[in-house]
């Protein structure tokens, strides 16, 4: 039985050493940004500035997940733009429809 296991699995000496430093570095960056968000939740009054800080920190987190964990930073330029250009158009949609929502609010409450 021991022989059999030896046959179809690699010899441990052939397997390279794990290279995980960058993974844990990214992890601590993500945890740090999340902790920072909670600091702002408790220390700052709600408002446009606080929301802007949250959105910027979210974009930072998204960058680290997509660039490092999903490896997009190391793909070709063509693939990177194929993903980023359509996504950036969605920012326009978001801004346009939130503006629309505020307009409906003004119309409904007659402000």
């Amino acid at each position: 039985m021991a022989n059999h296991v030896g046959l179809d699995s690699h010899n441990p000496a052939e397997i390279a050493k794990p290279n995980t430093g960058w993974i844990w570095k990214t992890f601590f960056v993500l945890v740090g940004i999340t902790a920072l968000e909670f600091v702002f939740v408790f220390l700052m009054d709600p408002g446009t500035l606080r929301n802007a800080i949250f959105i910027i920190l979210t974009i930072f987190k998204a960058f680290f997940i997509v660039a490092e964990f999903m490896h997009l930073k190391h793909e070709t330029k063509g693939l990177i733009w194929t993903i980023l250009i359509p996504m950036s158009l969605l920012v326009w949609l978001l801004v346009a429809l939130i503006t629309e929502g505020s307009y409906i609010n003004e119309a409904v409450f007659n402000r």
Partner: peptide, 24 residues
């Protein structure tokens, strides 16, 4: 990647809807 891009559109639509309705 292309599937995830299309899935991102769906989630973005959800969150955009949330933004519109919240501001309304």
């Amino acid at each position: 990647w292309f599937f995830l891009l299309s899935d991102a559109f769906t989630f973005a639509a959800f969150l955009t809807t949330y933004g519109l309705i919240r501001h309304r």
